[in-house]
Nucleic acid binder design. Sequence first.
DNA 1: CCCCATGTTGTAGG
DNA 2: TCCTACAACATGGG
Length: 259
Amino acid sequence: MPELPDVEVYRSYLAHTVLHKKIEDIKINVDRILASPKERIIELKGNSFEDTHRHGKYCFLKNNKDSFLILHFGMTGDVEYYQKEDDPKNSALVFLFSEGHKFAFISIRKLGKVFITKDKQEFIKEKELGPDALSVAKDDFLKIIQSKRGMIKSALINQKFIAGIGNIYSDEILFQAQIHPTTNISRLDEKLLDNLYKKMRKVLIMAIARQAEPEKFPQSYLLPHRSKGEKCPRCGGEIAQTKVSGRTAYYCPKCQKEM
DNA sequence: CCCCATGTTGTAGG
DNA sequence: TCCTACAACATGGG
């Protein structure tokens, strides 16, 4: 479930588990997840991870040679730190530490990617990522959105504008801001965008606090009800769906009026 | 069997 | 140039 909140939960988990341990061996089970040459990964043997970062949906593991292993989860993914002999199902990449401790990068659909880079900023530039959704200042957020055209949901999930928001969380943010997903940006005045920024932060921060598990979210949020036939937790009306940028958008037609 | 799914990338068209 | 739609990638669930 890898949008910004999910990746932040993974990052925090890794920060508490894999740091400052010598990498004794590396198992590459699924070659297609490698976005950098295999040798670059193998070179990590003997090194240790020393720090973690996140930008949008990308998780960075800095090592003692000042380069970064970058994890991107695609549509499905997980990380697991464990000691048992058997690796978790769908382990694409496994790092082995001393005393049988291991760290697996899991990718069911194999759409995850692993990169190595010397320069984090250079990587962000190459990927053309916008500022991180939880780090961007309000003024910058407004400037970025106001310089775009088209539907607000499309802009929110475009990683080149703001990094970290995907299809699921854009629905929640727009529900909280009471903005219809297909609203044209030109129809949103400063007050609405200001509120959108606040709701974006509110949603992402709440989600991280609850381990990005929608079952743990307050019932007043959309995500626990984000499926066909469900009722809007605010007005009791039926949740509707439509297509935006090829993705399914869920919304409440009564609370999120078209503008 | 069918359709759908949290992401990214490339292509085609307006 | 910028935006939209769509297919492809691979796998699992309903």
